[in-house]
């Protein structure tokens, strides 16, 4: 089956660039004639994940795999890791600093919003090593 692969690197702490990967990938999905409402779900989840890397990690990468059946995204960062994933999945739970909240991020809805928009979500995290978020949306 035909596949396409895209990779984006995400810089830590740079909110000016946060969303660039999502916007780029959105353009790809539009060019591939993916259903507009499905594109929206993918991009909303991807944007949440991208902002998480910018806000919480020391930097990371996004790997996007597309085939005619599904879109699979892997968001990997190099640390510091999530201490309690279950807690992080709770509505409203946030570790964001005041500075980040002032910019309109970090309301504690990120992972929840991500989960609501995708068909499959898996989060693995190791303190000191990093976090890997994998999500799939069926087409």
């Amino acid at each position: 089956m035909k596949k396409l692969f895209f990779e984006y690197s995400v810089e830590a702490g740079n909110f000016t660039k946060a969303g660039d990967a999502s916007s780029n990938f959105k353009k790809v999905l539009k060019q591939l004639n993916v259903d507009p409402q499905v594109i929206k779900r993918i991009v909303v989840a991807l944007y949440e994940g991208e902002v998480n890397i910018v806000a919480h990690s020391v930097g990371g990468n996004i790997f996007c795999n597309i085939d005619p059946k599904s879109v699979n995204l892997i968001l990997k960062d190099d640390g510091p890791g999530i201490p309690d994933i279950n807690k992080a999945m709770q509505v409203g739970f946030s570790t964001a600093s005041a500075k980040v909240r002032e910019m309109g991020f970090g309301a504690g809805m990120g992972l929840v919003n991500m989960k609501n928009n995708v068909d499959f979500l898996k989060i693995e995290s190791e303190m000191g090593k990093g976090t890997k978020v994998e999500l799939t949306v069926n087409l």
Binding site: L4, K30, Q31, L32, N33, V34, I66, P68, L139
Partner: peptide, 20 residues
């Protein structure tokens, strides 16, 4: 109704080839 002009092809597999 949407009428996307960004698509490279109606068929996704062909669109993928064109994108490549």
């Amino acid at each position: 109704k949407p009428r996307s002009m960004m698509k490279l092809d109606e068929n996704m597999e062909i669109a993928m080839m064109k994108l490549k």
